[in-house]
């Protein structure tokens, strides 16, 4: 599978979480990639590991949007 397909999967997972009312609460980046911690209004938490560079760009755009508008 190409890296692009991996990215599409990561993007879908991020979009799904946002659609479910989650917002980004923390991001940890290390040698294993990035771990995006999300939380909804009920306090439920989810963590997504993002491996592709395009995926890391994508959640960064989501984060900037979240910080700019207060919503995703």
């Amino acid at each position: 599978m190409s890296e692009y397909q991996d990215f599409l999967q990561e993007r879908d997972r991020l979009d799904f979480m946002i659609q479910q009312g989650y917002s980004i609460k923390n991001i940890i980046e290390n040698l294993s990639g990035a771990f995006v911690e999300l939380e909804n209004k009920e306090g439920e938490k989810e963590t997504l590991q993002i491996l592709t560079p395009d995926g890391r760009k994508y959640f960064s755009v989501l984060l900037l949007k979240q910080q700019k508008t207060g919503a995703l």
Partner: peptide, 25 residues
Amino acid sequence: GLPPMTWNERQAALGILACGVDPVT
């Protein structure tokens, strides 16, 4: 399909997130 975003802007956003500051409020 994504808006322009520089590395410096991205890192600033991550920094704000790490500090727990809400830039909107």
